[in-house]
Design a protein around this nucleic acid. Sequence first.
DNA 1: ACCTGAACACCGTTCAAGT
DNA 2: ACCTGAACACCGTTCAAGT
Lengths: 235, 235
Amino acid sequence: MGRPAKFNREQLKAAALALVDEQGLASLSMRTLAAALGTGAMTLYNYVETRQDLEILVVEAVMADVRWPKAMPGDWREEVRVIATALWHAVRSHPQVIPLILTRRSRTPAVFGAAEALLRALARSGRAGHELLVAFRAVSALLIGMAQAELAGPLTLQAGESAEETVARFRALPQETYPRLIDIATVATESSAEAEFHATLDLLIEGLAAERAPARGRRQRGSKAVSADRMQARR
Amino acid sequence: MGRPAKFNREQLKAAALALVDEQGLASLSMRTLAAALGTGAMTLYNYVETRQDLEILVVEAVMADVRWPKAMPGDWREEVRVIATALWHAVRSHPQVIPLILTRRSRTPAVFGAAEALLRALARSGRAGHELLVAFRAVSALLIGMAQAELAGPLTLQAGESAEETVARFRALPQETYPRLIDIATVATESSAEAEFHATLDLLIEGLAAERAPARGRRQRGSKAVSADRMQARR
DNA sequence: ACCTGAACACCGTTCAAGT
DNA sequence: ACCTGAACACCGTTCAAGT
């Protein structure tokens, strides 16, 4: 007894991310990761509860290097922009992991830290309680949604498809039924994910600024007494 | 030769969706679906190319029943709201399929039709070309992102966790480091996905309305000549 | 405490043989 | 043309035996 550990979670994390980055998500399995570490599959279970647990580890590895300046320039809009962009860049630098990011959830200091920073920035717009939650959800959703668009957007290239082929695919649709869709598909091939992300984020931030209507009350902070009156069934 | 087909894609589609709805996504396999149809696994390959193909079929099944009124009430904002909400409801009514929706892409008339309708509504805000693309991306991303939030949101309940347990989990975090995160976690347990979706959508629509700045030129329609000047590297 | 091979109950898919 | 069983090369994970 008292046998010294051969590995640790940090090593698995790094090896798993490297494997996914280099060989793709499909290449990750308990057996392949073990082989990459020079051991048997069962050894991994000393560090990881299940395969899902391993996948969460990979997501954590990606989110771990989100960095943003703590001293913030300018107003809250710029602060929101910087933090959201930092998160987006972290996700984008490991495109193979995106399906896991969409699908697994990591509860790690890196993510919590970014969330808290984002909340702090959004709170500077004058929001608290449910309004702050909504603002946070909106920015998060946009981020995740734009990451997903990169993976499988209806207008982006398919795997191994050229821009010309994509346009051709859309042009093959009935022109009278989908005029705007066909048009936009053409535009999309000349656009960049980076530009689109910033433009959509600006759109949302514009909304956050516009809706910061002064006289609406209900601005107490740290309260659980946020009323639910405006919350129900809008249509 | 000339042997009559025992099934068709439509039947597989319906059976697969029913299986996922009732038994969960993990229960879907070529073998289980075949068994549900009373045949062997290999028979399915007469209708479906691969397992991925089958998964896309399931996504199509979900998107197939998106419905929205063709005659639109009120202004373009209301129109955007109605279409986005219709899409969101379709997704939400099959929560087990969400991971597939996030991860696979369906190119089906139902989805194209909804996209075209959304584009038409957004175009009424005075957008065309790249601006229209951005508006479309933003609404789509918000939709997808809010669907994902339901699956794995950092503030929502974990599987089989009560609201109290969620709050407790967040309260266990260091209060000085994550004051707003802890606060918002409490607020989230009293909120509803429906209310949050509508609120975030309104936020974005507000931004779409605010950014509809008049004198900015470049409004030609159906053109591929949308310039890329404002598109590059914002920061 | 940690390591690990054998084994089990699954997968998706190829192949070859049927009608 | 469509059907289908056998087989192959994988999975994640349990178990039991090791140190």
